[in-house]
Design a protein around this nucleic acid. Structure first.
Lengths: 252, 252
DNA sequence: TAGTGGTCTAGACCACGTC
DNA sequence: ACGTGGTCTAGACCACTAC
């Protein structure tokens, strides 16, 4: 027994063995792994130790656990988000919805959309948009789903003085989206900056994106500026990192 | 007591309380949080329950724990990696080391560098470089450190037929780096593609980057192609997500 | 030495999913 | 009904850090 002193096997060792087995291909994506009870028997450890080993793999994003069912090897079949080509002038001038070009045959849809035509801007948003603190902004919230699973949350902020009274404050801003409407107003966005960060989700994000434990989120802050360099929109996106490959093409 | 039935407080509730307190600013970055013993006393729970609450916050990247010391609120002071401007033709034509322009006054250095002048390419590398499976490649491994902490691992793969016998197989390839040497060979890279993914680190990555638990890594696969569209380099980078903001600027 | 976090055991009960 | 994972208690010992 391991009652006193060093235990024969530790949770980390059990996890390492399973990790190696997955890496070797002994378990393919979707395959079932030994569960808590199986590890207790095979390694002679207490339940909490077996749990900890499995929790470690889950935290690494290697496995998913389904309560009452078992532990399974996780796959990774992402969608490509092309960060630059999709923003070439053509898409919104031609009236093509930007997101329709993404999913490569898979069904990426807007699940829900809410519009707020004028709220006080949070401080960081106001600063990014070069507005006075507390200035009013128009806010558009969307959630995108792929094959029924939410994969991205997006919130756009536009200066209220710019967006109010235009179709931008409508749930459906018309062909070409809000960028086409900004162009109608003579404020077509021509320069973009995307700042990416990755971290573990807040519980709210994890719930809204139905994330498996061990899945990070990528936050993209996209600032769109008009020809004079004035910011016209901030789009703050939160992506399920397990669902996306984010691609940028550019020339020297 | 909670011996039978529903406990008065759960680990998730304790975690939620601390999370909210951090969000409110009751605890600033660097501040010490109540530890295991404090939570056991204040909430009347067992050690494992207090531990689980603290482990949850750690997994979210909100806290760092230092053994024998305590639990502390984590900060976020990243460096900006500019993914496009840094690759404009000027830097390597003028002989400026690419990475010197990154850290905005902070000390970003190459910690270690190893070069392998000819090994068989892994299948995925060979495919990306449009080589026959198992074809030889030149491999350059670097680790970058910022203020003494490693923040990025980078491995470049170049076709051996291209790199062999050139300064590319030297640890120091000379002014302008390997891109300048590729230009010398008439194979200057002019088109780039960066594919980004984020996930939790493997134990090896966590060790090499000295990552705190709860920190994801961002993997960037950068493919450089010459004027004829032939791939000349694949640079696979692994970034500490807590150390970087990754920025792309581009025009419509 | 005292306090901190890290790990493990042993046993109990709960909640979910399948059969 | 049964097996699965999810949660908690209670107590023990270890390892690291500061004083």
């Amino acid at each position: 027994m391991s009652r006193d002193g060093v235990p024969e096997v530790t949770a980390a060792e059990i996890a390492a063995g399973l990790r190696a087995a997955i890496a070797r291909g002994d378990y393919a994506p979707g395959d079932r792994l030994p569960g808590e009870n199986a590890l207790m028997d095979s390694h002679g450890v207490a339940r909490m130790t077996a749990r900890k080993a499995l929790a470690q793999l889950q935290a690494e994003g290697l496995t998913v656990t389904r309560r009452g069912v078992g532990v399974f090897v996780r796959g990774f079949t992402p969608v490509i988000r092309n960060g630059i080509a999709r923003l070439a002038s053509r898409p919104w001038e031609a009236g093509t919805p930007i997101w329709e070009r993404e999913a490569r045959g898979r069904a990426l849809d807007v699940d829900s959309i809410t519009v707020d035509a004028g709220t006080g801007a949070p401080d960081d948003i106001a600063r990014i948009l070069a507005l006075a603190p507390g200035a009013k902004v128009c806010r558009r919230d969307r959630r995108y789903v792929l094959d029924g699973k939410p994969v991205m949350l997006a919130t756009s902020y536009l200066p209220a003085e710019l967006a109010c009274g235009s179709p931008i404050t409508e749930p459906d801003p018309g062909p070409g989206g809000i960028y086409a409407r900004l162009a109608d107003l003579g404020r077509a966005p021509v320069h973009f900056r995307e700042d990416l960060t990755a971290r573990m989700p807040t519980p709210e994000q994890a719930g809204a994106l139905q994330l498996e434990p061990g899945t990070p989120v990528v936050t993209i802050d996209r600032i769109a500026a008009d020809a004079n360099g004035h910011p016209v929109e901030l789009n703050r996106m939160t992506l399920d990192a397990a669902a996306y490959v984010i691609r940028y093409d550019f020339d020297a």
